[in-house]
Nucleic acid binder design. Structure first.
Lengths: 330, 330
DNA sequence: TTGAAAGCGGTACCAG
DNA sequence: CTGGTACCGCTTTCAA
């Protein structure tokens, strides 16, 4: 592999001049510029990335942390992030936490080592106070999660409102006994969503029961499991469920139908994220659409703004719009 | 951020010694080692990744190319790859081709620039001859795709056999008029799968019609589109479909039911990949299970073997087992 | 407009 | 066992 020295030698100029050509600096005579470019082409030279990075102190690599890369929502986030990053000549490195604090902290070390230039947190496993110290090492940004005080850009949507909207929709459809499925109370975003759920119930003087609230709802299998538990409830069962995930909703519906319930007759289900799966179940799933790809793209452009303009990181909450998409399950 | 020089100064030793401690070299006295480690700890020092990488000529970064990160199959592949890489202290950078040759070639430049140490191709958009020159720059490995002559490790499964098995299953169920959906004839793997389909038909003296073969089948929407075309077929319609993707199968089934077909009564459908979606449609989808996560993990360990043992890259085809998973759609 | 040279922060060879 | 030092390949003053 040729180096800049060899190109310089062949062109009979200094490495500085070659470097200037490479970086489009002014003050290089047109004649030399052309000659250098010709030799570069001829030798098929490309600059050594690590050497350049060491000098300029940047890796052109962004990390995105997600619980699991194969979760449809996060896969969409990765898609958006990856797309936007590439347009700006940044690469994206995927980091999975598997919902585990330690893995997330491990990721922070990448920032400390300058292995990555910045981090997009697609979820948050640790307490923010354990993450904050790493801000000294480079920009961190929160995307799809919320925190009350974190002094970083936060890209999210109004979880309270979307939760409220989903439940109000169920109420308007005539349902009164409404349950809620979510993945984990560790997530501030999910807690706010839950508040929206509770507020909608309260505003309409509707009952709410502890046993209608299910956590640990991540996947299709969890939906099936939860539906079995509902089926076995000794007392009153919910007539509708607000599920924090389309996967869970799909599992709920499938198992409900298996158990002989009519959906939405006996049990209505509303999902979240408006994933493609919503369109292929029977009945199809009413859901809340989240502009996930946009979320990812914006996360990158915001992060790069901090990086290139050296903007100090500051708190700045950006809310994206969500939309109720009504289908057959409600 | 402290550097190795500062640590050396504080410890009153040379940078060589600190480096030795850092890299667990022998020939450092226990006393000095402990002192150095203490200071490193105290200063919260971590080595600069780019500097180290420049010296050792490695970025500890692997690239994986997929058509789209949010395709469930490829999301699973990314998951497996990412998991395994991290265990070996490598990072994984996701690269999306969007089924476009140019993007794939762009990826090759990362290898040339030493931005990544190796590449896992989850698909292949270009002709192999256009990729092969980059082998000089670093290891490339094919995963989930096949090529007749490429001199690189290929991790895949027997597409002929799985195609044959799927179709034989339909035949055993009594179907005779069997169609085929696949995404693109650019994929050698898909062509082999098609050969399996054709061979099964031929071995059972069954007819095959050009108009029962559909390409451009990637997504749920494509499934719906194809079902509409089948519905409009002027002559004989297929009684069963072998779809190269569960997403497409789900779309086919959904639309078939919408159009008043009974599945599998009037039309049987078999998918591919055995994704979670298979379990939530009505009817549930018979599919071919692919050990995608394993495929990803193996790809990484194989690639790292080339990297660490400096093994010359050579052709080596590894076949993974697939399995027919029978559900309600057949 | 150009070149010389000093790093960026490590690693590893060679001498002692 | 330890230290001195020459790089790795590029960018960026500074001086000419």
């Amino acid at each position: 592999m040729p180096t800049i020295q060899e190109i310089a030698k062949l062109c009979k100029v200094s490495t500085s001049t070659v470097s200037r050509v490479l970086n489009n600096h002014p003050y290089v005579s047109e004649k030399i510029r052309r000659e250098v470019l010709r030799v570069i082409e001829e030798m098929n030279y490309t600059p050594h990335f690590l050497a350049r990075g060491l000098r300029t102190n940047s890796s052109k690599l962004l990390a995105v942390s997600v619980p699991k890369a194969d979760h449809p929502f996060f896969a969409g986030l990765i898609k958006g992030i990856s797309l936007q990053a590439l347009e700006s000549n940044y690469k994206v490195c995927v980091f999975q936490t598997f919902y585990c604090k330690e893995n997330e902290l491990e990721l922070m070390k990448l920032l400390q080592n300058r292995e990555v230039d910045g981090i997009i947190l697609g979820a948050l496993e640790n307490l923010w106070d354990d993450i904050a110290p790493y801000l000294k090492r480079g920009p961190i940004l929160m995307c799809n999660e919320f925190h009350e005080t974190a002094q970083v850009p936060i890209l999210c949507y109004n979880e309270f409102e979307s939760g409220y909207t989903a439940v109000r929709h169920l109420i308007e459809r005539g349902y009164r006994d409404i349950g809620f499925c979510f993945d984990t109370a560790n997530s501030e975003a999910q807690n706010i969503r839950k508040k929206g759920y509770l507020a909608a119930l309260a505003d309409h003087n509707l009952p709410y029961r502890e046993e209608w609230i299910f956590d640990g709802a991540f996947s299709i299998l969890d939906g099936i499991r939860i539906m079995n538990r509902i089926h076995d409830l000794p007392e009153k069962k919910p007539a509708a469920l607000f599920s924090g995930s389309d996967q869970v909703a799909a599992g709920l519906i499938k198992q409900a139908v298996n158990l002989g319930y009519s959906v939405p007759g006996d049990l209505a289900v509303i999902g979240y994220d408006n994933q493609p799966i919503c369109r292929v179940t029977t009945p199809t799933i009413t859901s809340i659409d989240i502009p996930v790809e946009q979320l990812g793209r914006k996360a990158v452009s915001r992060l790069l703004a901090c990086l290139t303009e050296e903007l100090p990181l500051k708190r700045e909450v950006t809310l994206f719009p969500t939309e109720l998409v009504v289908r057959e399950s409600t």
